[in-house]
Design a protein around this nucleic acid. Structure first.
Ligand code: ZN
Ligand code: ZN
Ligand code: ZN
Ligand code: ZN
Lengths: 148, 148
DNA sequence: ACCCCAGCTTACCTTGACGTAAAGGGAAGC
DNA sequence: GCTTCCCTTTACGTCAAGGTAAGCTGGGGT
């Protein structure tokens, strides 16, 4: 729905996807390059149930939809969500009519994450302060000792 | 040198250290309480070579020196150093005449750490921004949908 | 005598996100 | 026909900082 049904009855005889882009699907290597990931990572996401690409001759074949999902995964990771959380989010993303649930989920875990980050922010601030003091003291010491 | 030689010929017949404080040494439980750690953690630090307490009747006995070291460990951890780095630092701390080396080490890794924290700071800032935008949008969406 | 508590050692488990190796298959290019 | 490249699967290893469990010891109190 809205993403277009996968019209790829593949005139391609080739085993290796990835050579001819623009068909709406992709091989794992190409996808990895595109997102700056390793193929291993993408397989790992599949293991964890975040992706379910089709197979063609036992090779993974990624549709446009899969690529969108991978984009969401990457964004989730950039925002510091765990793969488990991302998986739940994607589950909601499955059905288009679950937008509200999706948004609620986003709200809940987003706020959660914001709180954690704000706490982390304060931690980093304090640690930086202490560390700067410490390094300044060390600088002072070294200066005093090396130039008597 | 400078920390006082361990004058604890122990009139105590007791096997269990920790009962009588003020002798300059301590049992593991007492020490754990004092620093807010578990005994397991302290043994772990010993495993990693950060502490080398004496034994008395097969029980760990912590001198004043050990307690100082543990204090340094905790501070290092608060500042986000890894145990390996802390261990190196403590190695320099061993010899009193290595103060300068110690300070240089502190300078080097301190600056390293500061740079990492500053980067982390920016990351957190950006993530917070994006996340707030995202949550705001979700709020907006939910508002629009639930109140038609 | 018995139980409880604290400590000891050794060894495996945990969490997250992959890396690495092994062993093989199919296709493309020379 | 050979090499090279990419792909597949399964399985085990990694890192940090401990947690948890098992099985033993030894003292104190009742
Ligand atoms: Zn959450
Ligand atoms: Zn200050
Ligand atoms: Zn360092
Ligand atoms: Zn913005």
């Amino acid at each position: 729905m809205g993403l277009g049904s996968n019209q790829r009855t593949s005139q391609r005889t080739s085993q290796r996807p990835g050579g001819t882009p623009g068909n709406g699907w992709t091989g794992i290597g190409e996808l990895a390059d595109e997102f700056g990931l390793t193929p291993r990572t993408i397989r790992f996401y599949e293991d964890k149930g975040l992706l379910t690409p089709a197979r063609e001759n036992n090779q993974r074949v990624y549709s446009h939809r899969d690529r969108v999902r991978l984009g969401l995964i990457c964004r989730g990771k950039r925002l510091g969500f765990t793969l488990t959380e991302i998986k739940e989010f994607l589950k909601l993303y499955e059905a288009d009519d679950n937008r509200i649930e999706q948004m609620r989920f986003l709200l809940h875990h987003g706020r959660e994450r914001i709180a954690a980050l704000e706490s982390q922010w304060r931690d980093v601030e304090e640690t930086l302060h202490d560390l700067r003091d410490l390094v300044a003291a060390a600088e002072e010491y070294v200066r005093r000792v090396t130039r008597p």
